[in-house]
Design a protein around this nucleic acid. Sequence first.
DNA 1: GTGGTCTAGACCACA
DNA 2: GTGGTCTAGACCACA
Lengths: 123, 123, 123, 123
Amino acid sequence: MESFDGKLPVYLQVVDLLFTWIVLGQLSPGDQIPTVRKLAADLGVNPNTVQKALQTLEERGIATAVVGRGRFITEDGNLLIEVRDEVITKQVAKFVEKMKIYSLSEAEITQRVHQYIKERMGD
Amino acid sequence: MESFDGKLPVYLQVVDLLFTWIVLGQLSPGDQIPTVRKLAADLGVNPNTVQKALQTLEERGIATAVVGRGRFITEDGNLLIEVRDEVITKQVAKFVEKMKIYSLSEAEITQRVHQYIKERMGD
Amino acid sequence: MESFDGKLPVYLQVVDLLFTWIVLGQLSPGDQIPTVRKLAADLGVNPNTVQKALQTLEERGIATAVVGRGRFITEDGNLLIEVRDEVITKQVAKFVEKMKIYSLSEAEITQRVHQYIKERMGD
Amino acid sequence: MESFDGKLPVYLQVVDLLFTWIVLGQLSPGDQIPTVRKLAADLGVNPNTVQKALQTLEERGIATAVVGRGRFITEDGNLLIEVRDEVITKQVAKFVEKMKIYSLSEAEITQRVHQYIKERMGD
DNA sequence: GTGGTCTAGACCACA
DNA sequence: GTGGTCTAGACCACA
């Protein structure tokens, strides 16, 4: 996984990735999650790291392991909405903070977003 | 350049990086830009790639090369403001498009940004 | 490219050559330009050098690259007329300046050209 | 002599070069011409070729060999004026013919030269 | 030392 | 196959 280079611990990057898959609907309620080995291979990281990431999901009730069957996404829609909200908030935060580093005032930030959307309205 | 892993050609990533330095004020009007060789070494890319990136800046009048002396950022403040605007717009676009992939309506996007800023007001 | 021996950078000599081909009508609007590799082989220069020359043409809108298809001369006749004018002016300038080095006055230069043409009238 | 690549026989190119030196005043009446060996070395051609070129000059009375002393440019000013005229006419011819290849009418050629000079008047 | 050019050769995406 | 990018490494002119 070539782009695993941020400062964030790799296992948390894997958590973020799984969250993103959920938000994008690539992992829906009840879906089976790829096996640890497959994920590890696909992402180019250590299976232990994937294991740790999946445990995080389980602790939050987002995934459940069924011995001998595999791991599955929860059927609990509210939990997934929570995940979705969390992912979006994180992105918004990241964006706003970056804009602040560019010395934009908060008013300017909203104004910029508003303007961009207005200009592109209809796309 | 460890984090150079996007799909964007490396030389355009270098252009983006230099633009960011300008926006952040780490490169001010009249400043000397690090030498081709130094940039190449620091970023872990080939000098030719850096050269190509810097020529892009020159074509836009943002930098000027003086053979035997080095490269310098233009004194023309308007050009730099243009760069700043461009960088910001690109970031806003990236953000908005990502939000749309998450199936947020345009109203929701502005609302989220607005809300985040309001909650953090004072930080 | 045996006769590529001037002080002009090779890639600019290639640009000049392509311009001349356009002026001579050997490259007409819409025509496909020989491939980078063919040009490089024919001229005895490196493909990268040809690439650089062709990019110069593109920046001026004289040629367009279609990845996987090839490069084509613009259909825009005005641009080509511009090229033609530029090539001719460059030749005239070169000629006049050389004549000045030979200590000919400007009046003598025009007189010489005029006389040569008059004597050869009918050729 | 890297630029010895035209279609003209090399010894005639050497003749042309010597003529040019005369026109430019780099070889004045009575001046000693560099030795065959020096010329050959400087121009990167065979001494026999230089020899042949110098014989052409001698046949026209432009240069004289003095055994044991070297070769000298004639003191006869008229002959040198003739050379000058010849060199210039050759250049004019070359220029006009090239312009004709570019499909310029004779009127356009003189017009172009006239215009270029007018625009640059004062340089 | 600094930017500019050039070669040789590789790998990629698009068609 | 075609254009586009990139590396490694060399050589040049200017200062």
